[in-house]
Amino acid sequence: MKHSSNCSRRHFLAACCGVAAVGVAGPLWAAARVAHGDPAHPTPRPGITAARVLPDSELVDYSSCQSAFDAIREIPQIVDGIRCHCGCAEIPGFYSLLSCYEGAGMARICEICQGQGRLAARLHKAGKTLDEIRASVDARYG
């Protein structure tokens, strides 16, 4: 999978076309997502660590998402309190956004998982609380 910050303008164009392709479904969704409430985020498990997050050796073919995995390893106790909005939360065995970075490593191929992880790390670094991070993740991806 090739994905990097270099997509820039092309990414924006693709986003424009993607929204156009689904007709005019975007506008109300965009407005409505502002009003979304907290969709039952999980409680971080006591003593949770990043021990099960995929190591670099599992990311050789997914170098563009390596920074997201690196960020997750720094804040397992935070991402374990966030519900993923990509749809994987319904998968048996899934507990939190941290789960996306473990096991089958869905975050290796899922832009939503990567985005939520990077956003959580960025906001944590900026001093935001877990609740504030949850609210931002919901606003952006909910």
Partner: peptide, 29 residues
Amino acid sequence: YDVVTDVVFEFAVTDGRATGFEIRGPTDL
């Protein structure tokens, strides 16, 4: 007419005034 929902504009605000913005894609890059 159309809204791009997977690209977000984030304004940087200092002393109550935006100094610039970042445009972030779905991966938050």
